[in-house]
Nucleic acid binder design. Structure first.
Length: 579
DNA sequence: GCCGTTTTCGGCCCGACTGTTTTCAGTCG
């Protein structure tokens, strides 16, 4: 069974957790966490790197010792050091560590003082009043632990980016309406446009800070106020989403925005850079000794550190600071760069609107083209079009295009990649399409090798165009299929094929990390909404978000081009093969 | 345990809040 980077990273994180409980050198612990982060955000698979004999020490944060451990993990699937620690500390301690009031010190005290090693035992100890008797613990802490155990049992998962947006918009409106409030900005992972959101951070400037924190605490949807100070408030909304608000002085607004936008790893890099310059960075500004240098706007903070402003989507400690220092930050693609959408459905298969309704909606967005990609025959559950119906739709598109000014519908299909790697439409029909979107919808559980071969074989067909939603994941519901994405991307480049960034908020597929890998390998992407109704064309921004997080610029994206410029890119292989 | 146009040894990001405290440790973001 191949091992994914995320699993390797999780092992080092667990190692760090257990070492914390053990009371190991905190800097050594940090080294493991840094390594976990470095591996987690790596585009390439460490297992493949090891197989190719590449030097893992080239990865920043990985030295000789951790490189050896990575090799042990990918070759044996185990890490003896971790297994030794697991033998010494019960598995339930990890659950305890996840509680807000408990860190490694208190978990260790509870385990050694009371023999408590899981949430159930912890709850019993609290109910029996034993916890308050431990040194450093009290009655209040005992009560908090009880509440946190209960919450952990009913814990809600991270919410989708789109869900968080819907919940947060009215809060922002509520805060803006408070008297004396000047600036309100959502920071955190929502501003970095991560695919899921754990909690929401909001930065505010106002004439009266306490009035704003009070205002949040009194917001109608608040279920519980977790903390409530003069300049800071933390509340839990009914759906389980936590909102942290920070009121800041005007001159610190930019520094606070940097600080609360994160990521944490990005901030650590910034402060480390500052220290080398003999500066200090905190949420109030950039300081030289006690002297305040900058902080009113984000641009000022970065400039004081010798950097250009870095777009929030890049602030993940994936090399953005080095790129900023070198002046090689990419100009990122924007929604405004897009000239069309390359995947949309109609009532002919499983969509909700007609050809004309979809065309009008796309044109109203300022697009020049929209590809109609109703499903192919094998996908019966989605009303896939048989050959005759598709041919009739193509005629209808021709007629409609004659009535549309400055806009055209593109003839297309979302073509099934069958289990044997063949495409679900005959070549003569494929040849008549403007764009060919190819996708897997069935047999998702093939082995990694078989699934990879299936897609590469499909790409051998000279009519293969764009691989749609390549990993088939549904965020929080279905994991990605087992597939060697690096091989798929290299195969796509060799064959002149492309991949999709599907903008459906529950797909976001390719994700940001694979977008970056596609760019490195040299495969262009289509940012497509896969819209099933006119309103879903707006989802495009979520696809753009992930593309930006993957460092993609306008040139890396197919549909930033006019149809005249795009067409030869899609036709190229047919010309080359003479078909 | 990692890392180095200040260092191959001696550093390693910073402040608010909570709960326990009579001056601060622990945790979080």
């Amino acid at each position: 069974m191949p091992i994914q980077n995320a699993q390797v990273a999780a092992m080092f994180d667990e190692l760090a957790d257990l070492l914390e409980i053990e009371g190991a050198n905190p800097f050594r612990i940090r080294a493991y966490r840094n390594a976990a982060h470095a591996i987690g955000v790596l585009g390439e698979n460490v297992e493949d790197m090891v197989a190719r004999g590449e030097n893992l020490r080239a990865i920043p944060g990985i030295g000789a010792a951790i490189a050896d451990k990575v090799i042990q993990i990918v070759t044996t699937g185990r890490l003896t050091q971790l297994e030794d620690l697991r033998a010494r500390y019960p598995a339930g301690l990890g659950d305890m560590l996840a509680l807000a009031s408990l860190g490694p010190k208190r978990v260790k005290a509870l385990y050694e003082g009371l023999g408590v090693s899981d949430l159930d035992a912890l709850e019993q100890a609290a109910l029996q009043g034993k916890i308050r008797e431990l040194p450093g613990f009290g009655e209040r802490m005992e009560q908090n632990i009880l509440e946190e155990v209960e919450r952990a049992r009913t814990a809600s998962r991270r919410v989708l980016l789109v869900e968080a947006e819907v919940l947060v918009a009215p809060i922002v409106a509520h805060l803006r309406a408070i008297e004396g409030v000047r600036r309100v900005e959502v920071a955190g992972s929502l501003r970095r446009r991560r695919e899921t959101i754990g909690d929401v951070d909001i930065v505010v400037t106002a004439a009266d800070d306490a009035r704003v924190t009070q205002g949040l605490a009194e917001y109608a949807e608040v279920q519980e106020v977790e903390a409530h100070g003069h300049t800071r408030a933390s509340v839990r909304l009914r759906p389980g989403l936590e909102v942290d608000l920070r009121a800041m002085p005007e001159e610190s607004y930019g520094a606070a925005l940097v600080y609360f936008t994160g990521s944490k790893a990005h901030n650590v890099r910034l402060r480390t850079l500052a220290v080398k310059m003999n500066y200090k960075v905190n949420e109030y500004g950039v300081f030289h000794g006690a002297r305040w240098l900058a902080g009113a706007e984000e641009e000022d903070v970065y400039r004081a550190l010798g950097l250009p402003w870095i777009p929030p989507e890049l602030r993940e400690d994936r090399g953005e600071i080095d790129a900023a220092l070198a002046g090689t930050l990419p100009r990122l693609v924007t929604v405004e760069d897009l000239r069309g959408d390359l995947q949309a459905h109609t009532v002919a298969s499983d969509g909700k609107a007609t050809l004309e309704e979809m065309a009008r909606a796309a044109q109203a967005r300022g697009y020049e083209y929209l590809a109609i990609t109703d499903h192919s025959p094998s996908l019966r559950v989605a009303g896939g079009l048989e050959v005759e119906r598709l041919a009739r739709q193509m005629d209808e598109i021709d007629r409609l295009n004659e009535t549309l000014e400055g806009f055209r519908l593109l003839k297309s299909s979302e073509i099934e990649i069958l289990p044997d790697g063949s495409l679900d439409l005959p070549d003569d029909l494929l040849a008549r399409l403007d764009v060919r979107i190819c996708a897997i919808h069935s047999r998702l559980n093939l082995s990694r090798e078989a699934q990879t071969e299936r897609v590469l074989r499909a790409m051998d067909n000279p009519y293969f165009g764009i691989l749609a939603h390549p990993t088939e994941r549904l965020i929080g519901q279905r994991p990605p299929i087992e597939i060697d994405m690096e091989r798929v991307l290299r195969g796509a480049r060799e064959r002149g094929c492309y991949v999709e960034v599907n903008a459906q908020p529950y797909r976001l597929d390719l994700d940001d990390v694979y977008c970056r890998l596609a760019k490195e390998i040299g495969v262009r992407v289509a940012i497509s909404t896969d819209a099933h109704s006119p309103g879903e064309l707006d989802y495009v921004r979520f696809g753009v978000d992930q593309a930006r997080r993957g460092w993609l610029g306008p040139d890396d994206v197919l549909n930033t081009r006019s149809w005249e410029d795009l067409r030869p890119l899609l036709e190229r292989r047919e010309l080359a093969t003479g078909s």
